[in-house]
Design a protein around this nucleic acid. Structure first.
Lengths: 125, 125
DNA sequence: TTACAAGTTAAAGTTAGGTTTAAGTCAAGC
DNA sequence: GCTTGACTTAAACCTAACTTTAACTTGTAA
């Protein structure tokens, strides 16, 4: 089954303009077009887009996602390199989670002690 | 104890240019300057900056942080409004953590099954 | 008193990740 | 055969959050 850009956009919950932007920036090197130029998203393309969303939503820059894609294209010779990228990214996600957990602790503390707090209490509560 | 911008920058681990930027954009309405114009960071300013970092690092836009600051200046009349802001922000942090957890699961799954994966395996592993 | 370090400003430049616009192509329904 | 709707492109525009630059002032040390 193949999808138009609009259908693909609905499936991965990104605007069509974003899908065009990703394609233009080399994130979809395998994407096919019909003879008169419209993009045709295959199931594989959709799955790749879902991975792109997952990586992007967890803070990987598009540049890096593209680099990962390029390594995929080069086949199994690059699998060790790709594993390393994912491991670095995992560490990065874990770091982000620690930052969020720490901030959440501060917010929760503030909320627990939030009776008549003003600017002059910033350093005391 | 008062700090120069450089000392404050070191304490809160932000570049001095960022501290100037924050001041210029109204995030530091209580910051004092010496008679010849250099910024003087008090302990209270430092604590406020630490809260700014905490909010910013957990994804609150500077606009909103500034709005929060302004409410603080208005005193206890706005405490309910500030509590609401913090509660919305807490919910936002929790949402971010769910996104990260979900992505982490995908990455971990990929890493666990990472033997000879290429582009053509994107949809199968 | 001269030079240096540290501060100041306004304004311009940067980066990431898009979105919007303008002008055009194509196939189908009426 | 004409309009409509979905697609295309290149290029311009946008926003957040800074950073850099250029020109300037000020206090301190030699």
């Amino acid at each position: 089954m193949e999808y138009t850009i609009k259908q693909a956009a609905e499936r991965v919950k990104l605007p069509a303009s974003t899908l065009r932007y990703y394609d233009k920036n080399g994130l979809m090197p395998l994407l096919k077009k019909t003879s008169y130029g419209t993009r045709q998203y295959s199931e594989t393309d959709i799955h790749w887009l879902e991975l792109v969303r997952c990586l992007k939503d967890s803070g990987m820059p598009l540049d890096e996602i593209k680099a990962f894609m390029m390594l995929c294209l080069e086949g199994s010779a690059t699998s060790e390199q790709r594993r390393e990228m994912l491991e670095l990214h995992r560490a990065n996600i874990e770091r982000q989670m620690r930052v969020l957990t720490r901030s959440l602790g501060v917010i929760n503390y503030k909320l627990d002690h939030y009776n008549e707090i003003g600017i002059f209490h910033i350093d005391k509560d």
